[in-house]
Design a binder for these strands. Structure first.
Length: 104
DNA sequence: AAGGTGACTGATG
DNA sequence: GCATCAGCCACCT
């Protein structure tokens, strides 16, 4: 497992309940500012495997990025259950719910 | 081996 | 806000 992947997994694990991070944000913190797609792949391949809070990751526009309808709904349910306000179209307010480590 | 793909992003018109 | 374009990069055909 690459250091980058390692970092990504750690970072995602550290997202507090009721908050979210974006793919690009995670990639940047993990040392690869343009590696958003890698973050996607890591989530896609090993979200269940490592018991990651994959549902706390959204795209840069603050919306649920999942294409598949089922998983999409599931993510929305999880977030709402944690207190995050998500619109029916999967939109949420990043300024309000984004997690920023160490007060960056 | 070459080309397509996507749970992405930022810039521009 | 919407549409396009161009970077991006590991994986799958």
């Amino acid at each position: 497992m690459s250091p980058f992947t390692q970092r990504v997994l750690e970072i995602i694990q550290e997202i507090p309940e009721g908050q979210v991070m974006t793919y690009g944000q995670i990639a940047g913190l993990a040392g690869s500012p343009r590696g958003a797609r890698q973050v996607v792949r890591i989530l896609h391949s090993s979200s269940g495997k490592y018991g990651l809070p994959w549902h706390r990751v959204v795209n840069a526009r603050g919306e649920i990025a999942i294409r598949q309808e089922e998983s999409r709904m599931l993510q929305m349910l999880y977030l709402r259950d944690e207190g995050v306000e998500v619109a029916d179209n999967g939109q949420l307010d990043l300024d309000r719910w984004r997690f920023i480590p160490h007060g960056e």
